[in-house]
């Protein structure tokens, strides 16, 4: 099977956000593989182990992303590809999709996996957008995947309920939490990863015109939420506290 994963490098979920000159500061920030993409990588590796074939992990970003791509290789992926967009000023989900679509244009694939959202912009757009551009079916937020021949059977999380969905390969799927437990890279895995192929493609080497990748959206402003004032910690007998709380919720906050 030709298995591809689309991956994004994101801020560690523990990071606080600092805004400098209208931009999110990356200074001192720890980066990780987007947690949802980690499920996608793990699932891809398991698919390959069960069905044979090869896992290629593709990401877009600057050279720094090579670190997360190496991590994916250390987990067990076979190949990694970085589409380098360092010289591209302006990009959004439309841009990302156009670059990925250009990359996949001459590739043969059975399945493309990705996370259902990234934990930074959380738009969840790129998976479905890419599937549409490639003319293949897609299933989002999957929590289980079985492939038999060319038929994929999936469970997907739909706002707490579960749907069982069937589709034919080639297919794009996006991972939801609960799909699997991503492995940690092993020491031999890390050693092997150093020798695995990591291809660095400059975005303008792809067959895509500048006006085809120009962002369709524009960010005007970024800001932090107003700091919340410390609230009221109630005191006294527990029974009285509970009574006071209910009164406050009804009369002061008026939410019940």
């Amino acid at each position: 099977m030709n298995i591809y994963v689309i991956m994004k490098r994101t801020f560690d979920t523990e990071e606080k956000i600092v805004i400098e000159n209208g931009k999110i500061s990356e200074e001192g920030v720890e980066f990780i593989i987007n947690p949802y993409d980690e499920y996608a990588i793990e699932e891809a590796i398991q698919l390959r182990d069960d069905h044979g074939g090869e896992v290629t992990v593709v990401s877009i970003g600057d050279e720094e992303v090579e670190k997360e791509l190496r991590t994916a290789l250390a987990m067990g992926a076979d190949k990694a590809v970085l589409i380098n967009n360092e010289d591209l000023d302006d990009s959004d989900q439309y841009t990302t999709t156009a670059l990925l679509a250009a990359y996949f244009e001459d590739k043969e694939f059975d399945i493309i996996l990705g996370g259902n959202v990234s934990n930074d912009n959380s738009t969840g757009q790129v998976g479905p957008r890419l599937a549409e551009k490639l003319g293949i079916a897609y299933v989002t937020t999957i929590t289980k995947l079985d492939i038999d021949g060319t038929t994929a059977t999936m469970e997907r999380d739909v706002e707490g309920d579960m749907e069982i969905v069937e589709a034919q390969l080639p297919l794009l799927v996006t991972a939801q939490q609960g799909l699997n437990e991503p492995r940690y890279p092993s020491l031999p895995g890390i050693m092997k990863a150093k020798k695995k192929p990591l291809e660095n493609i400059d975005y303008d080497e792809l067959d895509v015109e500048d006006d085809e990748i120009e962002a369709k959206t524009e960010t005007i402003e970024r800001y932090l939420p107003p700091k919340k004032e410390a609230g009221k910690v109630l005191e006294g007998e527990l029974g009285d506290q509970v009574e006071e709380l209910v009164k406050l919720l009804r009369q002061e906050a008026k939410v019940i």
Binding site: F11, K16, I17, I19, I24, N119, D120, N121, S122, A215, K216, T217, E218, T219, I220, E221, R222, Y223, L224, P225
Partner: peptide, 17 residues
């Protein structure tokens, strides 16, 4: 819209179309 799960916010518009 919120970004970073509500740790920050952004204002955004569609450029054209």
């Amino acid at each position: 819209r919120p970004i970073y799960s509500g740790k920050a916010f952004e204002k955004k518009k569609i450029k054209e179309g």
